[in-house]
Write a protein that binds this DNA or RNA. Structure first.
Lengths: 247, 247
DNA sequence: GCACATAGGTACGGTGCCGGACAGAAAGGG
DNA sequence: CCCTTTCTGTCCGGCACCGTACCTATGTGC
């Protein structure tokens, strides 16, 4: 696999040349293995992570061990927003959901650049708003929609952050993300397979009919997607990454 | 009732004297009647609202009319974060849940001050992070906890933002906030009343035993409360200011 | 005081998800 | 190759919540 440049993360790609130049020497490409906890609840972060081909889930784990994903971050975003929001830590965990690479930036470097008030600040805040939308929609979805619908939403959100049509993911893990029982995922996935929407084989999902998947999903996916697109339509970024096929 | 000064909102109170002076002439005290939509989904905002003795709920309304509250804002915060986050609008609604007053600030004035990068910026971002925590916790709570527990959480969050122990609120409205049926709230409130925790009479709730209410609530209330307190610790903020910055 | 609207209580079948328990099936390592 | 581990499919009782319907209080305005 060829090394991916910083431009593979859409936030970094949208930075001005001057800013990217200032940060470049501090950006380090790191491997994120499946299951790695990029940060733990309450711990003070030392780096921001800009995923390139990896996916990171933000989840809350409750006292009794039950968990739920509240948002998912791919190459459109960054992990560690509390570093520039000023809180330094959050009560959530960040776990690698799909292995891959990410650019890592020391917190201090980001803070210096953030405080200049340039495009980095603007980009990070705008991205944070789209993350907020995702969390809010997740809250509503958890309240009102069936596991079947939520599985569709989840698959679509993950798919958008990967290149192909395949996911490496067990039902057990999906269940942890959605905060439901594994059996519930088995049932939902079984229906999708029977309907010819996906193909499932032991830790590996192939999406066969994306359009049908979108139809079976609740509106939440579309809302998040629309808002995410709207908020990442900054000048330049839109031009660079407007590949209709991939989106 | 005596007129409440800008210091009645904790964000405004934490501003430096210089900043407050610059903003003061633009701050306008307005009445927020029960049920007023401070903003509608997707609309571009023109003002920020800093509640003093009112409470504003942020809710998402779905295509089929079902709704759910994702966060609640009182005098510890501000309504209209999308104005400084850069998105200008959000897919949510903001509805007055408890009538009262708020200070209103034109968006333009806030943006000018925000871009100075002073304490207003830090305060608003820090507050936004606590709002994010609240939304995330709501998402998890919607997934895992019973209506009974959620009602307790909701009562406590509302109580924290009011002075006394009484709420003016119908079960119908609470049900809309929690995204459940009115009957579910009736049942839950009935249990609380029988347990001597609250007293209910036609649109009016008195909390008799706050400690018991906290015990019956899920952990979500405590998590949100703790994080909200931590993030509004302004000595901590002063510490951040002491750090060298690029300005 | 009466009419009316609004708020709150109760009932009942339906169902989606949970809890636990197990069995078969597919990788992977020695 | 077998054995082990991991992943997936299935079954069952139980319960919280839903949808619907209807009825009773309580307050408001004429």
């Amino acid at each position: 696999m060829p090394t991916l440049g910083p431009k593979s993360n859409r936030l970094l790609a949208a930075l001005s040349a001057v800013e990217l130049k200032r940060l470049r020497s501090h950006l380090e490409l790191v491997e994120l293995p499946l299951g790695l906890a990029v940060y733990e609840s309450g711990r003070v972060l030392e780096h921001l992570y800009f995923p390139v081909n990896s996916i990171v889930s933000l989840l809350y784990v409750m006292e009794d061990g039950a968990s739920a994903e509240i948002a998912v971050v791919g190459n459109e975003g960054v992990v560690g927003i509390s570093l520039f929001m000023g809180g330094e830590s959050t009560p959530s965990r960040a776990v690698v959901q799909s292995a891959g690479q990410a650019y890592r930036l020391p917190a201090r470097m980001m803070q210096v650049e953030f405080n200049r008030g340039g495009s980095l600040q603007h980009l990070l805040l705008r991205y944070t708003q789209s993350l907020i939308t995702q969390m809010a929609q997740t809250a509503v979805c958890n309240r009102h929609h069936s596991v079947d619908q939520q599985l569709c939403r989840w698959l679509l959100l993950s798919l958008d952050r990967l290149s192909g049509t395949d996911l490496v993911m067990t039902q057990e893990l999906i269940a942890n993300m959605l905060g439901v029982r594994r059996e519930g995922v088995t049932a939902a996935a079984g229906k999708l397979q029977k309907a010819g929407v996906i193909n499932y084989r032991r830790g590996h999902i192939s999406v066969l009919d994306r359009r049908k998947l979108e139809k079976l999903s609740c509106e939440c996916y579309a809302v998040v997607r629309r808002e995410c697109d709207r908020l990442s339509d900054y000048e330049g970024l839109a031009r660079i990454f407007a590949k209709p096929s991939a989106r």
